[in-house]
Structure formats: C-alpha cells, structure tokens
C-alpha cells in the first residue's frame, strides 16, 4: 500500500511518502500529488522518502515526472531522506541525492 500525506504550508508543499513504491503503488499517488500542486501552486515541493520501505525504477518515473510538472508550475522540487538503496536506483537516471546530516 502506497500513500502520500501532503502538507501545505504557505509556499511550501511537503509530500510525505509511505509504503512501497512500485509500478502499482506509483499509479495511485501521482494524480493526488499533481492535483495538490495545481491547487496550491507552491514555490517549493519536497518529496520526503523517509516512510518508504521499498522502491524500484517506478520511483524514478515518479520523481522525474513530478520534476517536470513542478518546472511547468514554477516550483522547485527537492527529494529528501532517500536511503542507500533508493539512491542507487535514482543515480541510474542521473538523479543526485544529498544525504542530509544536519536535520
């Protein structure tokens, strides 16, 4: 079961992802995320992967498509709390992730 908890705070939209992100799960959350971006038109979108227990290449599609969508909407997209396994997958698409050590 994949779920997304979306928190809107002024110009920031935080998307907390939970569960397993595969082809099946990604389908169910992407429209929800996009519709919230359209609704709030944030300047900053953060996708937080700390609640994600598994991710395959469907996660790449999910991030890249949201990145394009954010660009079209004038927002910046940040990906946070990605573990080593997810980082390995995202790096196949040239998505660099920074392991956050300060907070």
């Amino acid at each position: 079961m994949t779920t997304a908890e979306i928190i809107h705070d002024k110009s920031k939209l935080t998307v907390l992802l939970y569960g397993e992100i595969d082809h099946h799960g990604a389908q169910s959350i992407r429209t929800e995320i996009d519709s919230r971006i359209l609704k709030y038109m944030p300047k900053l979108v953060i996708m937080d992967f700390s609640g994600v227990t598994f991710m395959d290449s469907s996660g790449i599609g999910l991030v890249l498509a949201r990145s394009r969508f954010c660009t079209d909407c004038g927002a910046s997209l940040y990906v946070e709390n990605v573990d080593r396994q997810m980082s390995k997958i995202l790096s196949l698409a040239g998505i660099k992730t920074i392991q956050n050590t300060t907070n």
């Binding site: 469907s58 599609g61 196949l92 698409a93």
Partner: peptide, 23 residues
C-alpha cells in the same frame, strides 16, 4: 538500452533492465 521505453504515455523511465543489470 537505458532510457529506452515503448511506453511514452505513462511515466516509465525505461530503466527496468538497467536496474536488473545493476542489482
């Protein structure tokens, strides 16, 4: 081939085989 996909209408990245090869 990485990034090759026949499925342009969805969000598949075309990296399925690349993941299998890497892992």
């Amino acid at each position: 081939q990485p990034m090759f996909t026949t499925d342009a209408k969805t969000e598949r990245a075309g990296l399925g085989f690349a993941v299998m090869q890497t892992f």
